[in-house]
Design a protein around this nucleic acid. Structure first.
Length: 329
DNA sequence: AAGATCTGCAACCGCATACCA
DNA sequence: ATGGTATGCGGTTGCAGATCT
């Protein structure tokens, strides 16, 4: 139907609201009630368009608006609702008393979306991202196999479809294993990185299928352990804590490295690895219809607890049953 | 210390839909 | 049925403050 008359007519103010304008709008609505936004600004003595007034009232001045940070419960609710409703912010806001659609939208774009991305979850589909599955598969098949293969050869022509740095990462792990297989195997056994019940030496359990080997791999720890190696090979991929590698491969030879829960992972990261940057490894989500760089903000470092927490659970998704990794190769 | 870059959020823009004459 | 207006909604922008180099 007909287009809304543009708000920016002559004499109408735009931009941030002043306290005086807020007061005028609030006073008017308290007396006359909200509604009839077209005539409201004139009646309230405001040089604003009705649209601007409505937005200001619904998103900021309304007395029932809950200000402040979102609680954990609210955040979980938003994620769940978004997985069902998509970007229906008003519908989501309807289930979160005191929160506006604009506030939820902003919070999604600035916090939740980035956290999901860091966790390897596509914020559009809420499914694990394909490139992370690929990396997981590469790492699993690489580390669990006795034979030394070039990952690019392993993937053949499909390798070009992956983030090149994923290939570098996998190749680096293979190089590490080639240079010092005993340490790698020892570490793999300690961390049960290969999900086989048998020791790594019995590689048949792993080489038959990459998927079982990579399910629920604690890859955060793997990343920590190999971070120093990456530093030498990758300019943008560095974990500055040298002790991490030595602790993992040299220290505590008799004590099994614990399989970390999310919380303990968080603690270990907080203790010494806060500056790890994995973003260079992450590629534009293949499964996402919208390019990553379309977002006005894009994380490029991990420095907050929230990010560290998210980071610690990286790769800890389960590969769905029935998913044939060969479909991607 | 200062400039560059990043981040979060309020506000705007334009399209879609509802409503009404 | 048609067309004009009001309102709702989602995407995007701009800016101030924070952080980084």
């Amino acid at each position: 139907m007909g287009r809304t008359p543009c708000c920016d007519k002559n004499g109408l103010k735009k931009g941030p609201w002043t306290p005086e304008e807020d007061l005028k709008l609030t006073n008017y609505i308290q007396i006359h009630g909200a509604g009839n936004w077209r005539t409201l600004p004139k009646n309230a003595g405001l040089q604003r368009c009705g649209k601007s007034c409505r937005l200001r009232w619904t998103n900021y001045l309304r007395p029932d608006i809950k200000r402040g940070r979102f609680s954990f419960e609210e955040e979980e609710t938003i994620i769940q609702l978004h997985s069902i409703l998509g970007n229906k912010w008003s519908a989501i806001a309807g289930r979160l008393p005191g929160r506006t659609d604009n506030e939820i939208k902003n919070y999604w774009n600035t916090h939740i979306r980035k956290r999901l991305l860091r966790n390897g979850i596509d914020p559009v589909t809420h499914a694990p991202r394909l490139d992370f599955l690929e990396l997981s598969s590469i790492l699993g098949s690489t580390l669990c196999s006795q034979s030394v293969l070039n990952v690019s050869n392993l993937l053949g022509a499909q390798a070009g479809l992956l983030n090149p740095q994923l290939l570098i990462l996998a190749n680096t792990l293979m190089s590490l294993k080639q240079e010092n297989p005993e340490l790698v195997l020892q570490y793999l056994n300690q961390t049960q990185l290969c999900n086989s019940q048998a020791p790594i030496q019995d590689t048949s359990a792993c080489t038959t299928s990459a998927v079982p080997c990579t399910s629920m791999i604690n890859q955060t720890e793997l990343m920590q352990a190999t971070g120093e190696v990456f530093t030498s090979n990758m300019t943008n991929f560095s974990c500055p804590t040298y002790s991490t590698l030595t602790n993992a491969f040299v220290g505590q030879p008799n004590s099994a490295v614990p399989i970390l829960s999310e919380n303990s992972n968080l603690q270990s990261l907080q203790d010494g690895n806060q500056n790890c940057n994995f973003d260079s490894v992450r590629s534009t989500p293949i499964s996402s219809p919208t390019p990553l760089h379309s977002s006005p903000t894009y994380v490029n470092s991990c420095s907050t607890n929230e990010e560290i927490e998210s980071f610690s659970s990286l790769f800890k998704f389960e590969i769905p049953e029935g998913l044939d990794i060969n479909d991607f190769m």
